[in-house]
Each structure stands twice: as C-alpha cells, then as structure tokens.
Design a protein around this nucleic acid. Structure first.
Lengths: 392, 392
DNA sequence: GGTGATCCTGCAAAGGTTTGCAGTGAAGTA
DNA sequence: TACTTCACTGCAAACCTTTGCAGGATCACC
C-alpha cells in the first residue's frame, strides 16, 4: 500500500558460517580449552600460543558465543531496561546514562518498551530473565506484590517506585511538588489544581501527598483532577475541565501533560501564564522549546540511570551466581542488604508561571501581561529551590 | 552528592533457585525429554501426561531457559534494533511499531542506542549477533562496506540506508525534499538554504540531491549549510549563519534541527515565518506543539518499523539455520533474494512557512504578518504533495 | 641426580535444552 | 494367533563454552 518494491537480483550469501572455538582450536593446533583461556583468562596461556591462537581467531572471524558462555558462567553481561514509554522524552536521558554506565563495566543494555501496560511488563521480565543478569524496572505500573514475586526470578532494581526489600532509586518529586506549590502560592495563587497521572504510579501518589500538605500549609485550595494519561493528549483533553474549575494555577504530573494542557488552554482562548499558570515535572528538553517556556520540576534522570545500573551490578556481584562452577551447589537463603537512594529535584522557573489573583491587587502594574515574559516571574521563590532529601 | 541513602534492613532473599526442566521431570515422574516436548511440541505427548507436567511446572515456577534453547535450535526469538539516537523523537514510533509487530510473531525486541557513534554501532552488532536472530540497523552511520561485512555475521535489515545485497527499507525523502522546495518556490522564495545533517547519512545525500534538482528546476538558488548535528543544538548553532546567508527559506535535515533553528533565529530577532520560512523533516509529535507549528515532510516511521521486522523475519525463516538438528550440516552458499522497499513521504504544511520576497510585491496585503497564522499559507502546493516512489 | 616448584596444556564434565532414533505397550488387522 | 500400526516415551548426543584437576615439561636448587 503506497510503496514500491524494488527487488534486487538474488545475491550470494555469506551464510553465517558459525565459526566456533573448535575451529580455532583445530586451526591453531591446540585444545579448545586453550582457545577458551586465550579469551577468558589470557594470563594462563603462553604468550606465543596466545598470539597464534588470536591470529587464527582473527583469520576465521571467530567471536565467542555469549549465549553459550552465559549458559555455563551464569553471567550474560547484559542488563535489561524496562521502560513504560520510550516516546516519553523523560526516559531517553535515563536510558543513555544507563547504557554508558553499563558499557564502562562491560555490560550491554537491552531496552524494552511496555506501552504503559502492566501485562507487557510482566511478560517482558520473564522473557528477559534468563538473558540478562538483572533488570531495571523504570516507573513500573505493576503491583508491588507482583514486582516482589518477579524479583525472585531475576535481580531487580526499581526506579520511581518504592518496594520494600528491593533496591530502589527514587526521585524526590514530593519535595519538587512542595517547591512548586510554594512557588505558586508565593506568586499569589490560592486555587491550584493538581493534574494526576496514572493511578498506579508511585510518583503520582508522592506528588499528591506533598502537594496537599504544601497547599494546606500555605492556605491554598488544591483541586485534584485525574487520573490522566501522562501524555500531551492527556493534558489537552483536560483543559476544558481545568478552565471550568476556576483555578488560576496548575501543577501537572509531568511536562508532557503540562505542554498538552497549555495547548488545550490556548485552543480555548485561555492564556498561559497570564490567566493560568502551569508547572510541569521532569524538565524534558522540550520544555525549553515550547512557548511559553515551561516552569518545571527538574528530575535527575541521568543520575537515576547511572545509579540504578550501579546498584544492580553491585547486587549482582555479591550474589553467588558466578561461583557455580563444577558441581558447586548454589548457596541458598542469602541475606542481602537493599539500599534505597533518593535523588533530589529542582524547581526551575521559566515563563509558564506568573502572578496570581492575590498578587495583582498588591502590585497592579508589575506584570502588565507582556507577551514575552522572558524574565523569571515575580516575588516568590528564587530561581531554584532545593530542600533536603526526605528519608521515607 | 546531593542524595540521601536510606539503607533498609537486610532481608531474606528468594535467591533465584533456578528451576530447570530436570526438576519438573523429577517432580512429574517423566523423562526430561517429555517435559521438553510438553512445551515445544505438545501434540507429541499424551494429554494426561501433559497436564501433569504442566501442573508441576506451574508449581515449581519453571520457565524454559531461552538461552539454552537458542543454543541448540539456533533461534533466539529475539531481534536487535540499533538506533542512532533514542532521544530523537523520530525513532520511538519506529521502535514501538517494530516491537508490536515482533510481538505478534512471538519475538522480542532488544533496543540499543549508539549515540550516533559508528564504532558503537559495530560493537553492538557483534554483541547482539549471537543473542538475536537478526538486527535492524536504523539510520546507520557506518560505512556500507562495514555493514556488508557485518551482515555475514548476523542477518541484517537496514533502515534509511541503501546497501546493495541487503534488504532495506527506505523513506523517500528525496521526493519529500522536492515537494518542500517546490512548496517554498511556490510561495515566492528564490534563495533557499539546505541545512545538512550527518555526513554519513544516506537521507542527507538523498535530500541534497533532490533539493538541488528541484531548486534548479524552479529557478531558485540553493545554499548548502552543514554538516550539522541532527539535534536542536545543531539547528540553533547555525542560526547566525543562516541569517548572514541572506536566504528567505530553509529546509532542515530534520524537525529537531528545524526547531532549534527557529529558536536560534528567534534569539537573533528573526521571525519565522515572516522573515524566514522553515521546513523540517520527520513530522515528529513535537512539530505540532511548537509555535509556529512546523511545516514538515512526514516520514512513515511506524510503517518502516513494521516493514523492517517483516523483512527480517521472512529472510530469517528462509535461512536454513533451524534445520541444523543433529549433525545436519548447514547448507552453504544460499542464494537469497533481497528486497528493497521505498516508503512514501508527505509534505504537511503548517505555520512555519509563509510568502517569500517574490510573492510580496504581487500580493502586498495578503499576509500582513499577523501573529497567529493558523491557516496553511499561500498560493503554492496543496496540503499534501505525494509523488511516485522512485526506483533507484 | 633427585626434589620441588612453576608454567602451560589437555581432559572431561557441566550448563539447560532439543531431537533423531529406538523401544514399549496397546490397538487394529488378517 | 501373529503381524502391523500407532501413540507415546526414554535414551543419548549435540549445541558452545568454561573450569577444576591432573599430567608433562622445564628449571632451579641442594
């Protein structure tokens, strides 16, 4: 449909002649075990033999079969990375950081996308289980109990979710939400909406709790709207409801939703930040490119990726899997200490937040609705507000 | 640095007791081969035995070890997907389409990111080679000869690159570039710049060729600026040069660059589309969200992902790998017919293109630089221009 | 020249699964 | 009853690699 096939002539095929350790052994006149050692324990083989073997291997184009190696060593040197939605710009920095960190430790990363589908998540963990040494679960949508259960099948590190007994790396969105709410209250907003994300999201719950507390403390009224899909569509779909609710400021579950909301409000003729202020979460690259530029809670995604990989690899090296050897039984009932790391977030103030109704009477001419408010707005918080991480 | 460790108490560990086919056999009182058949050839085993085995397997939590299975069948049921830059929103739709297509065929997709680094590409192909049944190479930056060489190690399908003897799926950006240039010329632009992408990009060469031809045919002058990084940064970095060049319209290598350019021009006080028109390529989701909304050449990324997977799996099922069995030698010198599929592109006209200098005298009041040009501009092409795919 | 230590290499088992072949018992046919 | 057919199951080799153990050679030392 709509495309043209250009079928090239049939061509000779290199036909993937699988060259094994045995071929190399034959070619270089040594036993296969010597070839094996040449690659996995070079110091154990005579330098002369080694160069000869390496030359033959090079000649034949031999490459160790990682699958076979994994079968006996119990280590694949792969790690799995399960992502709720690759299309969400929140994830790529995390993925890249994880990959580079893994590469430094001679590991490879396999990424898989679940489309925010808990069933797909479970299935992917199973599929990956035997092909990787551990799995990073990013913003999972599964139940905690299922996660725990899966963790018995393969070492797991969880990102953006707190599950007891498992290593987690968390981003302190609670702190970020608090800073955002305080920022808005400082600007004179006293009716604020919180646009919720997926119900099963840990981040979502944390934000809600923190925002409620901060609003109460600041004497503002907080309206909960949601749950919504954590996408632009989710944001624009709820614009009408936001307008009707009569709030003057909104904290959205993430940047994508915030951007969608701004779009949606724009379509309704509601201007941001003049009539409604909007704050997002994540500080995706895109939030600097939209107009108005988005005020948002920056989450340390790259650091999260690095940290998660480190935790996984550390946990992995502690486990006795490698010591399996010949007939050596696997020790059971290992006791493991699981760490949880909380990473800080930063409020970065751009152009999508401005003075609210309670500020206008006080400084009536301060911000005359100029169309290009390039300067960080108002009286409230400074450019960035950071607090201490909270042990949960 | 900036994060708090919350070390939970040590906890009991399920310790990944690896339950194998042997355990199931013991538990259900049959031979391991029967267990094996229960999973891989159920019709060969007595229904009663089957349910008993399945029950035991379920009980013990047995899952077939795909790595071991792959070792003997020669089929991993995985496919690799190598991507130049996951952060480029061009790719996620392709990835998702590939994954869903693969899933339907009971395959899993492993995604890997190369950061636009040819060396990383090569290394990843090697790393994946034995763990997947084939690899999709998306917008590779390697040399054609290296790709050919790698294709002897593992079946390859190439996206956005034409390499003889290998199955390719291509997007007709040449046609798209032509439509874009014609659109601009129709709007009255006669000095146009082409912002080049990575030197090693096939897309880049195709665009250049087609744009040059179209410009010559339409009597416009085409300036080549580049190569540039295919990112927003790449686009904004070249804004100054674009201004100095005196062109009134720009066709950028991709949307990211176009958006970056618009940002950069904005910072220089140059307005889009009033002073300079900008066209991108890809039609990423983001291009609908920026202001002005981006005129762009839509590329069929999802279709490309689906098609590529199909081609890979088809090629794979033809290859004799599965027939390896016991002692059956692998047939060599297979002749393979390789197809190349060309997918069409569409010009979608939004708000980042407007009348050029040659149009203004003719219709002086037609477009009075209104700040909100929501209607598709001008006299030129209709909303979408499509041509026939070109056999190369 | 005998003893021991040091290096290097080969042997063979193991890892979890698939699968061709052969064997078993029961059912069907003559 | 004897023979064939059939459905099912067990046996054992094979996939490719790693690794503990042991044997052989070389060398130093007493």
């Amino acid at each position: 449909m709509g495309h043209t096939h250009v079928t090239a002539a049939t061509s000779d095929e290199g036909a993937a002649v699988p060259v094994t350790i045995r071929d190399v052994a034959r070619a270089s006149g040594v036993h296969i075990s010597t070839v094996s050692r040449t690659f996995s324990a070079p110091h154990l083989v005579n330098p002369e033999t080694r160069v000869r073997v390496l030359a033959c291997a090079e000649d034949l184009g031999y490459r160790p079969n990682r699958a076979a190696r994994a079968l006996i060593t119990g280590r694949t040197h792969n790690i799995g990375l399960i992502i709720a939605d690759i299309a969400n710009p929140f994830f790529p920095p995390l993925i890249k950081a994880a990959e580079s960190q893994a590469r430094h430790r001679d590991y490879h990363v396999f990424v898989a996308d679940t489309n925010e589908d808990p069933t797909a998540e479970e299935e992917l963990v199973h599929a990956l289980a035997k092909q990787v040494d551990g799995v990073l679960l990013c913003s999972p949508r599964m139940s905690n109990s299922l996660i725990e259960q899966l963790s018995r099948e393969v070492p797991l590190v969880v990102v953006n979710r707190q599950v007891t007994g498992l290593p987690c790396v968390l981003m302190d969105v609670g702190q970020g939400a608090r800073a955002a709410i305080e920022h808005l209250i400082g600007l004179g907003h006293d009716r604020i909406a919180l646009l919720g994300g997926p119900r099963s999201s840990w981040t979502n719950r944390e934000m809600r709790r923190a925002a409620a507390t901060a609003a109460r403390a600041g004497g503002a009224e907080l309206t909960l709207l949601g749950p919504n899909a954590p996408t632009e569509t989710g944001g624009s779909a709820i614009a009408e409801q936001v307008r009707r609710s009569g709030v003057s400021a909104v904290l959205a579950y993430n940047d994508l939703m915030a951007i969608g909301l701004i779009e949606g409000l724009d379509a309704l003729g509601v201007r941001v930040p003049q009539e409604v202020s909007v704050v997002g979460v994540d500080d995706i690259a895109l939030s600097r490119l939209t107009r108005p530029k988005l005020t948002t809670v920056a989450t340390p995604t790259a650091a999260a990726g690095r940290t998660a990989v480190d935790m996984l690899l550390q946990q992995d090296s502690e486990s006795p899997r490698g010591a399996r050897g010949l007939g050596v039984g696997t020790a059971l009932g290992v006791r493991r200490t699981t760490a949880q790391v909380m990473l800080q977030t930063d409020l970065v103030i751009r152009d999508s937040t401005g003075p609210g109704p309670q500020a206008r009477p006080a400084r009536p001419l301060a911000a005359p609705l100029g169309p290009d408010p390039h300067c960080p707005a108002g009286p409230g918080t400074p450019t960035a507000a950071t607090g201490d991480a909270v042990a949960s």
